[in-house]
């Protein structure tokens, strides 16, 4: 089976503390995957390695078809190769309007000169409007994103991710701080996104994960503890120990 992302044998340590320990992980081209695990299991570090923020001590990260190594590439190169990332806390550019945020994220040439000479076409505005409708921010396009509610910011960030048209979305705790209605909508957005691309969702909230209805990877102490559908995983003795035992 051809995989989009194949992480194998990756280890990362900070001053003796092993954040990732011989971790292996892979995901296909159009797949939704949830990653769960207790605090310190290495979820964020895993995303850091994939997006190029952290360099692993050993192991390999292969991407695409034919596979190329992502190790040693800069964050921006990896991002333009098709890996989009949403951070745990919403980080949108609060000083700028929702529209500006989305235009910035649109998949266009990224070099300084082409950005400087960029002139938005009607089609670009149409794409922005379309995305705004998906994330439900159509009416507030001209507002400064700093004025949005917390949930709206989360959606805006997901919208920016979609605008990048990535092949792989890494989404860190998208539902944190959302109301139940907002969560439902977020679930829908993610599941729709996973129809055409790979989506990895890191989440604490079991209910949210259950609603996603997808394969789950459980991380513990930097390596994979279990993998499978949610019911299968929750019956795993080790997983129960890790989550409840300590």
């Amino acid at each position: 089976m051809s995989q989009l992302l194949e992480v194998s044998g990756v280890s990362v340590s900070f001053d003796g503390f092993k954040a990732l320990n011989n971790l292996s992980f892979s995901i296909g081209k159009a797949e939704l995957r949830a990653v769960i695990g207790p605090n310190g299991a290495g979820k964020t570090t895993f995303m850091d390695v994939v997006t190029g923020k952290t360099r692993p001590d050993e192991g390999s990260v292969l991407w695409g078809e034919p596979p190329v190594s992502l190790l040693g590439k800069s964050e921006s190169k990896i991002a333009t190769a098709g890996v989009g990332r949403k951070f745990q806390r919403p980080t949108v550019f609060e000083d700028q309007s929702v529209q500006d945020n989305l235009i910035m994220a649109l998949k266009k040439a990224r070099s300084p000169l082409s950005v400087l000479l960029f002139k938005p076409e009607a089609s670009d505005f149409a794409r922005v409007d379309e995305l705004a409708d998906v994330i439900g921010l159509g009416p507030v396009l001209s507002m400064k994103s700093g004025e949005l509610s917390h949930g709206q910011k989360q959606w805006l960030e997901i919208g920016m991710l979609l605008a990048q048209e990535p092949k792989l979305l890494l989404v860190d705790e998208p539902a944190a701080g959302m109301t139940l209605a907002e969560r439902k909508k977020t679930t829908q957005i993610l599941r729709d996104a996973a129809k055409s691309r790979a989506v990895v969702v890191v989440e604490h909230d079991m209910d949210f994960v259950r609603r996603l209805d997808c394969r789950v990877t459980v991380l513990h102490e930097g390596s994979v503890l279990a993998e499978g559908y949610i019911d299968h995983v929750t019956q795993n003795q080790q997983v129960i120990e890790v989550y409840l035992g300590r």
Partner: peptide, 23 residues
């Protein structure tokens, strides 16, 4: 323009701009 947006983005959150794919 968009260039200004990116600049202000870098000012406010450099890492985020990087993950958007901008060098």
């Amino acid at each position: 323009g968009k260039f200004g947006s990116v600049l202000r983005g870098i000012r406010d959150d450099e890492a985020r701009v990087r993950f958007l794919g901008y060098p």
